[in-house]
């Protein structure tokens, strides 16, 4: 079995994995980071979005070995101690979730959006989120949360 090494939420990790292990499986099953979710088999839902070298990526679409040497961050790595990341706080305060299953992926995607576009419009947010499904909210409060989170991140 190949060995894979990467940095996850600032800590270096190294393990032997089956070559076909997906990054999402590695995070969830090997590292116990279950905040990254799996909602589909076809890369549509975005519940699994993490950051790889600072950019959002669907962790179900890449193999763990493809992340060799990368900096990976997951939803668990965002908060600074007990201070939530501004985007997390925005989702919490604006009720940007019902069941919350899509939330980690939404938050990770949204942060990447704001990194690329610091002052997104509603339209920008909606276009950006095409790869993140939510079945509960009709996206209304998610869009509101992201607009508020974008402001707070500039803050």
């Amino acid at each position: 079995m190949p060995t894979v090494s990467m940095t996850v939420n600032g800590e270096s990790v190294s393990s032997e994995v089956e070559p076909r292990t997906l990054l999402v499986q590695y995070l969830r099953e090997n590292l116990g980071l279950t905040g990254t979710h799996v909602g589909c088999d076809t890369s549509q839902c975005g519940a699994c979005v993490v950051h790889v070298n600072g950019k959002s990526a669907k962790s179900c679409t890449m193999l763990a070995v493809q992340a060799e040497g990368s900096e990976v961050s997951t939803i668990e790595g965002l908060a600074d101690g007990d201070t939530l990341h501004p985007m997390q706080e925005a989702f919490r305060e604006n009720h940007g979730l019902q069941c919350g299953f899509c939330t980690p992926g939404m938050v990770m995607s949204a942060i990447d959006l704001v990194q690329t576009n610091s002052d997104p419009s509603e339209h920008d947010v909606r276009e950006w989120l095409e790869g993140n499904l939510c079945r509960c909210t009709g996206y209304h409060n998610i869009v509101k949360s992201i607009l508020a989170g974008a402001k707070a991140m500039q803050g």
Partner: peptide, 23 residues
């Protein structure tokens, strides 16, 4: 009132335990 939900922090930090998350 639009109070903050009790499980809000767990849900936005990935701490919430869903069906597939227990081992």
């Amino acid at each position: 009132k639009r109070t903050i939900r009790p499980d809000g922090a767990d849900k936005v930090t990935g701490q919430a335990t869903f069906g597939a998350d227990t081992t």
